[in-house]
Design a protein around this nucleic acid. Structure first.
Lengths: 173, 173
DNA sequence: ATTAGCCGAATACATGTGTATTTGCACTGA
DNA sequence: TCAGTGCAAATACACATGTATTCGGCTAAT
């Protein structure tokens, strides 16, 4: 049975600020299981939890994988750029890059036009590793999205982007 | 302009497994900005980033707040139950509870029916703090959801729950 | 040309989390 | 009754992250 019978009947869908009912964490009828942000965290957690186990067998941690996916799109990239896209502090990325260099996944060189900037690039081995990992991640994605059609995914993306926009701009565009 | 013109035209919305186009991280046309999980992480990050600053002024960290929201629904709760609901390891929760005791936010007592279990309860001060924080969090939620109507939120929840279900059951139901 | 200020990255330090282990309690079967 | 097994929580240890600071290079004003 629905837990929002009362609120739903007193409010039509409109553009104005509405009673958010169970969704709003400040509502008395709020439940964690109906919280968008809790569910996002939960889905994200489960997605990465399973994936981490597999990735670790290939010597790749979650933060390292994140950096690699950023580099795949945007190469070379500075430490700062990577940090912004990977939602992590610069100092942390700096050290993650150190580890990745030790593993031979990336190489660095200072930007010739500005020696303060460290440009990071995937090595051939790094690209090779990423190619090996891609189908594994693809399977996990397919598993996560089973029974959800592309229209619903598109809807999900629109809503998530809207939320991100509301909270500030996306670091990478 | 749309980046999915090709794939969109060759595939109708259907129940069968489809070409996931830009959404699937193993697709050649994949882009991070169209990745559901990246966008979830991003939205969640922004949401908590802003909120943390405010919460810290009240002596409450993000993990502590998480524990409090779990306790609000489910009180008393064991360390293990809290850990599961808060997506955190038991050992970590155990130490978070220590800090919360020092701050007078919760009290503990061992379960009379099973002395291994530590039951955690919000103190009056803890409930007071939670009440004080609630409207702050409510405002952040409203800000995040601006321009998104309740039907879209309901749709979002359905999709997120479906994803969580696909990846394993929700710890709390 | 010099210097002050800014900015990107790297490092020192403190803290928080996870993994592995230990401790204490409960249940089961001999 | 009591040894053995299993579980919840707490603790020791290792490691990763964040904050604050330092180092070095760029830029603009004088």
């Amino acid at each position: 049975m629905s837990t929002r019978s009362k609120t739903a009947s007193t409010q039509q869908e409109g553009e104005n600020v509405e009673n958010r009912g169970d969704y709003d964490p400040s509502s008395p009828t709020f439940r964690l299981e109906n919280s968008p942000f809790y569910l996002m965290a939960h889905a994200d957690f489960k997605y990465h939890e399973d994936m981490d186990k597999v990735l670790h067998k290939h010597g790749v941690s979650k933060p390292i994988y994140r950096v690699m996916t950023v580099l795949r799109e945007h190469q070379p990239a500075s430490i700062g750029t990577i940090a912004e896209a990977a939602l992590t502090k610069r100092s942390t990325i700096s050290r993650i890059i150190d580890r990745m260099i030790e593993q031979g996944l990336v190489s660095t060189e200072s930007n010739p036009e500005d020696n303060r900037i460290t440009e990071v690039t995937l090595t051939a081995a790094g690209q090779q590793t990423l190619r090996k990992l891609t189908p594994i991640v693809g399977r996990q994605f397919t598993r996560a999205m089973a029974g959800i059609n592309n229209r619903d995914i598109a809807h999900l993306l629109r809503t998530l982007k809207k939320i991100s926009d509301n909270l500030g701009k996306l670091p990478i565009e």
